[in-house]
Design a protein around this nucleic acid. Structure first.
Length: 222
DNA sequence: AACCTCTGCAACCGCACATAA
DNA sequence: TTTATGTGCGGTTGCAGAGGT
């Protein structure tokens, strides 16, 4: 049995949101009514010709009042890298550790900036292993020569990374840490000063950070 | 000035999961 | 237990602006 679409496609607007639509959605979301209805009802009640899914996306990724706008700070970027080495492409989980940032924003930043930076630094953005090391592995293992690291499926890579995460003596994390320290990065944001280094061998800092990041920024929290 | 290519970001799509009936 | 529905997530696409020729 096929799944019903989230909205009847006829008469539903798609594409970029206008300022007027934003205003309507924000107005509705900030009203008391928003807490009592499903996303499907939001466009109807807010007077929008959009599907509920589109409204949710617009709200969570762009209109939420608690969102930080602008580029990720150096520290945020390093956190993303470290979290990615542990969690893989679990953008929502990564975003949960960065208050005010969305999974979409982090995903975009990863694909457009961080990936390139890591490659430039000689680190594979998928495995977080040095590229040179990987090359030598490839040449010694002829059966895998056909499968470049970039082409690996996310599911297998995630499994690998989650397993790595369980190992507190994670090599990739250590390698990342050393390479980051080598380029002389500094923590600029004093609010993160409680952690001497997020790449500490133990994962304790992550647990602490989770406490900070578990705030639900969805409409329920309004 | 016109065209082309590249880049970054917002938004969409389809699937998975959770839960209520 | 099954089915319907709502929501969340990750991958992908499309477009606008910047930069280069």
């Amino acid at each position: 049995m096929g799944r019903r679409p989230c909205c009847d496609k006829l008469g539903v607007k798609k594409g970029p949101w206008t300022a007027e639509e934003d205003e309507k959605l924000v107005g509705f979301m900030m009203s008391e009514n928003s807490g009592h209805c499903s996303w499907r009802m939001v466009p109807k009640l807010a007077g929008l010709r959009r599907c509920g899914k589109s409204c949710r996306l617009r709200w969570t990724n762009y209109l939420r009042p608690d969102l930080k706008r602008g580029l990720l700070s150096e520290l945020e970027e390093q956190l993303v890298i470290d979290l990615h080495s542990r969690l893989g492409n679990r953008w929502s989980q990564i975003a949960a550790k960065l208050p005010g940032r969305t999974d979409n924003e982090i995903k975009n930043h990863w694909n457009t900036n961080i990936k390139k930076k890591l490659i430039k630094m000689g680190i594979d953005p998928i495995t977080h292993q040095p590229l040179i090391k990987q090359e030598s592995i490839k040449t010694t293992n002829s059966t895998e020569v056909e499968a470049p690291a970039e082409a690996q499926t996310s599911s297998s890579e995630n499994t690998c990374q989650v397993e790595n995460c369980s190992n507190s003596e994670n090599n990739s994390s250590d390698l990342l840490a050393s390479s980051i320290w080598e380029v002389g990065l500094q923590f600029e944001d004093a609010s993160y000063g409680k952690w001497a280094s997020p790449w500490d061998d133990s994962c304790d800092w992550l647990t602490d950070y989770q406490e900070l990041g578990t705030v639900d920024f969805g409409k329920d929290s309004l």
